[in-house]
Design a protein around this nucleic acid. Structure first.
Lengths: 125, 125
DNA sequence: TGAACACATGAATGATTGTTCATATGTTGA
DNA sequence: TCAACATATGAACAATCATTCATGTGTTCA
């Protein structure tokens, strides 16, 4: 009486969806995760984070490093602050920015490993 | 003859910018990093990756899991494929998707750690 | 072959984003 | 207090993005 099924015998749509759903982060975490990775999704901001992982810098330094306007840099730094990825320290008229979290380096390193891994695939063999 | 400097004595704009620049990833990698993290910057795609880290799923399963249209899911999966984050396996009429890279879990875990860490800051005390 | 199913994709559209311009805030030295 | 400097921010605009709708491609079963 069983009818032939193109889906593997052990596969069941409902069970699969339910099982996966039960392992998802909650809505709040998902939203915040997306917000966090949004910060990493712009090469200008990645540049800033990579730079700050080596040394603290004032806004002027960062603008010079990037060849970007002070305003553009400041807007981007605002996002980094909002995500608790950088912290600031005032010194006279300057604001010095530094990384505020070890995860930044880890996330960027993982990303680099991934893209280098995929590049290897193309040439491999 | 030295004039008082509001910048810390050891701080030099040019040197700081040059030092940071010398440690940045190259342009291609920066671009690809941004592209990669763009994929992580949408909670729908994060949901898909989290789900696929537990079990392979066909498009129908994923659409049901997300409560999204088949077309929307398919468009998103295209991005995941383009970034080499998922691989596909055809079984009859179905395409089964699975994670193609351990870095996905690692990156999402780092992200979760970060947001939980920052939440701790608020309540900590 | 043709109908039904599963998935992919192009075009269009409303929403979001990064930058610029103009201006505001905060600090220093006089 | 004021001028000069360093940074922050609001509004506006072009570019990019996620979804929808319509349709195309590939597979199975009869």
């Amino acid at each position: 009486m069983e009818k032939k099924n193109p889906i593997p015998a052990e596969h069941n749509h409902q069970k699969t969806a339910d099982f996966a759903r039960s392992h998802l982060p909650n809505e709040d975490d998902l939203f915040e995760l997306a917000e966090l990775f949004k910060v990493f999704s712009d090469s200008t901001r990645i540049r800033v984070m990579c730079a700050l992982s080596k040394t603290e810098m004032c806004v002027y330094d960062i603008a010079e490093l990037l060849g970007a306007s002070q305003s553009a840099v400041s807007h981007q730094l605002r996002l980094l602050r909002a995500s608790h990825l950088v912290r600031t320290r005032r010194d006279g008229k300057n604001m010095f920015y530094a990384l505020d979290d070890d995860h930044v380096d880890a996330i960027i390193s993982m990303g680099l490993e991934h893209i280098r891994h995929t590049k290897g695939e193309k040439d491999n063999g």
